[in-house]
């Protein structure tokens, strides 16, 4: 268990910058947004962020495109039928694990 002073300064810079990016807009922005365009934009952002993060990264998430594709397919079908987040997430992982024994 060692703690290097130089590493500690790096961590302080990392943590400081990351917190400020999160805190400043979230804390200072108090107005209710009225612009329909900006409101619509903000409404779509979370879905767009998640879609961009998931595709194509999901296919490289298990170290094998085949097992990842099986997991993704299972997640897609379960999500299509409105299953809870935890069920979809863990079933995808279990499917990828099982697929790993086949491929």
């Amino acid at each position: 268990m060692t703690l290097d002073m130089k590493v500690l300064s790096y961590i302080a810079v990392m943590a400081g910058v990351t917190y400020l990016i999160r805190m400043l807009p979230f804390t200072l922005f108090r107005r209710e947004i009225t612009s329909p365009f900006f409101k619509s934009f903000l409404y779509y952002v979370p879905y767009a962020v998640l879609a961009a993060m998931t595709i194509p990264a999901i296919f490289y998430s298990t170290g094998s495109v085949m097992t990842a594709a099986v997991g993704a397919l299972v997640a897609f079908v379960l999500a299509w039928f409105n299953q809870p987040l935890i069920v979809v997430a863990l079933s995808a992982s279990a499917a990828a694990l099982l697929a790993g024994f086949i491929f």
Binding site: P46, Y47, L50, A51, M53, T54, A57, I58, S61, T62, A68, G71, A72, V74, A75, F76, L78, A79, Q83, P84, L85, I86, V87, V88, A89, L90, S91, A92, S93, A96
Partner: peptide
Amino acid sequence: IVLYGMFLAII
């Protein structure tokens, strides 16, 4: 793949 499965369940 867990996190990505959760993302799909959200979108």
